[in-house]
Design a protein around this nucleic acid. Structure first.
Lengths: 224, 224
DNA sequence: GGACGGCGTTAAGAACACGTAAAAACAAGC
DNA sequence: GCTTGTTTTTACGTGTTCTTAACGCCGTCC
């Protein structure tokens, strides 16, 4: 059974899609705005997202970004806007498809089939585990020995970047530009402070790290 | 570098796409009909297919079917037909996306990016292997007998340059200018020190190297 | 045979990068 | 306006890497 998260602020469209998709064998999770959509995506297993860009509470692009932060679930964007740059923005933000209104239901169904066919069996777990701690990318939480570890925003951003690339060496510049911004590419001492904090929170022996490794002169590496 | 197979029977469109995509950094393989398209897909590594449905020699749907028989390369369909059932047929035949003419070039580029992003990470693993060690260019890591070998920045730069050109002779000046900078082109003794360190870390018998070879008076060569 | 140039090895000081702690600056909530 | 939590500075000790020099080896050329 395929579960579809439908995000649309117009109740009648939401309802119409809900009925039609249900009639075609989909399990439908409705969401009238971006906030509930993001919340729903975190609490339930979603196979594909149908997203209307015109939402009352937040920009549709931010919804895409919010989802793409931790999941690769297919996103099909619905929009009344035909302009080229709207499509480009949505697709580059991480959407998989862009359908302009008005659209035929059978076309949407076909695109849903195409999107789910590609994704195939959902295997990607947003969990990264080590012998010492577990990082939950979806919940933005870290568990160590069963108990949660508090992370400050900056600590989380650094940790997330490293953990998303297990085994890969990340240069100081890359971490600094992605977490602090391009203007901070030279502030390498920030990193020393934050790597120290992360190690103190996550490593058994912070002075002899096993998972958050330093490669002198090159960068840092997360070893699972 | 991403390689795009473009299938279109109209020479001017084929040519226009070829020029535009090339200008945006894509390698383009053109095909005027279905037969040559299928042949080209078999002989070359294709990252994404752009397919016009109106072909002289065979039905576009059959081209999709012919590709889907053995590959999951992303297929973006171009078509003048707006009818719903055309889109449904193409998508259900295995196409990933369906763009109706006329379309904006930037939209096509965005859809190309979306298609390659999805399939992206699995393609082209930059791994260089020898009997003694393995160099992972993406992760900037070296494995020898399953255990990682630490490299200093300079060691890595020299090794990477050699390994990226397997079998090719690299002159001393070339290594020095690329790693240390043009001002150091004469400091050949640096190389002796670093080649020694690399051999000590990577060769079974550093005194009789098998992979990091010296060509007296000329330069160094990496033999896989 | 001996001098010479290119190469490999080793060792040690200099230069640089890193880790840690603690204080100052800043932001958010009450 | 105060408190609390977070980020940014600052300072200093330690560890790693780079550079440089010295020496030995092996060929070639005089």
């Amino acid at each position: 059974m395929t579960t579809v998260l439908i995000v649309d602020d117009e109740p009648q469209i939401l309802r119409a899609l809900q009925i039609n998709l249900h009639a075609h064998g989909y399990t439908v999770v409705p969401a009238p705005n971006g906030t509930t959509a993001l919340a729903a995506a975190q609490t339930q297993a979603i196979d594909v997202v149908v997203l209307d860009l015109g939402l009352p509470d937040m920009d549709g692009l931010d919804v895409i970004a919010g989802l793409r932060g931790w999941t690769e679930v297919p996103i099909i964007v619905l929009s009344a806007r035909h302009a080229s740059h709207d499509k480009v923005e949505a697709l580059d933000a991480g959407a998989d498809d862009y359908v302009t209104k008005p659209f035929g239901l059978d076309e949407l169904l076909a695109r849903l089939r195409a999107a789910t066919r590609r994704a195939g069996p959902q295997t990607s777990e947003p969990l990264v585990e080590t012998a010492e701690f577990t990082v939950d990318l979806a919940n933005k939480s870290v568990l160590r020995g069963g108990t949660p570890v508090r992370m400050t925003p900056t600590e989380w951003n650094v940790l997330e970047l490293l953990v998303r690339n297990p085994g890969r060496l990340i240069s100081q510049q890359q971490i600094l530009t992605e977490v602090w911004g391009p203007a901070y590419a030279k502030e390498t001492h920030y990193l020393r402070v934050y790597m120290g904090q992360l190690r103190r929170k996550l490593e058994r022996d912070p002075a002899a790290p096993v998972h958050l490794l330093t490669e002198a002169g090159m960068g840092y590496r997360f070893a699972p």
